[in-house]
Simulated scan of single mutants.
Amino acid sequence: MEPRTSPVAGSQAGVMLLEALIAILVFSLGILSVVALQATTVQLTSDAKYRTDATLLANRLLGQMWTSSGNLTAMKTAFQTGGTAYNAWLADVSGRDGLPGVVAASTGVVSTLPTVAVTINPGAADDGQVVITLRWRTPEMPLNAAGHQHIVVSQVSRNP
């Protein structure tokens, strides 16, 4: 005598395999989402590091300005783009611990050199105003991209 199988059991053959495949698909999508989230987190963390470095470098230059002589004309000559103090600071910015991708326009790519401007308007509200603009490119950015920038505006003046 043959064992009898019910028509219901025959119609459900392979359902467990199908459920297992769907579960594996859902699990795989979850893992891929976590990996993508991790990659985004790493990129945002490195961007935050570059912004923090730019802030620290600008504050370092401002500190050098505050400790220099109180003469705004001498400070403008030394610290404005191309001055002796600016060039010394630029060597630090472009070094191993500086911002990545800092290059001059003479290399054929978009200039990312920091710029410093000192305003001298005796008696005016903007007398002794310093504007520091830092630019950088992250390693994954193309060479001709403008990159990121951080602008610091401060007032450097002495009490009379």
Rank of each mutant, 00 (worst) to 15 (best):
M1V: 11
R4K: 12
T5R: 13
T5D: 03
S6Y: 11
P7W: 13
V8W: 10
A9W: 10
G10V: 06
G10C: 12
A13R: 12
V15D: 14
V15C: 05
V15P: 00
L17A: 06
E19Q: 13
A20M: 14
L21A: 13
L21D: 03
I24R: 09
L25S: 11
V26W: 01
V26A: 04
L29S: 12
L32H: 14
V34K: 00
V35C: 02
V35W: 05
V35G: 01
T40K: 03
T40E: 05
V42K: 10
V42N: 05
Q43E: 08
Q43S: 05
T45C: 08
S46W: 02
D47I: 07
T52C: 06
T52K: 13
D53Y: 08
T55D: 13
L56P: 00
L57S: 04
A58D: 09
L61Y: 13
L61D: 03
L62N: 15
G63Q: 15
S68V: 00
S68K: 00
G70T: 13
G70K: 13
N71F: 00
N71W: 02
L72K: 13
T73V: 08
A74S: 11
T77K: 12
T77Y: 04
A78L: 10
A78I: 02
T81G: 05
T81V: 10
T81A: 04
G83E: 09
T84A: 09
A85D: 09
A85M: 12
A85P: 00
Y86E: 07
Y86A: 05
N87A: 04
W89L: 14
L90R: 09
A91C: 15
D92T: 12
V93T: 12
G95D: 11
G98S: 08
L99S: 06
L99P: 04
L99W: 11
G101K: 03
A104P: 08
A104S: 07
A105C: 04
A105L: 05
S106V: 07
T107E: 15
T107Y: 11
S111Q: 03
T112F: 07
T112A: 12
L113C: 03
P114A: 10
P114H: 05
V118S: 05
I120M: 01
G123Q: 07
G123C: 11
G128T: 01
V130L: 02
V130Q: 01
V131W: 02
W136D: 15
R137P: 02
T138G: 03
E140G: 04
A145Q: 05
A145T: 02
H150P: 00
H150Q: 04
V152A: 06
V152C: 04
V153W: 02
S154L: 03
S154M: 13
V156N: 13
V156L: 10
V156H: 02
S157P: 01
R158C: 01
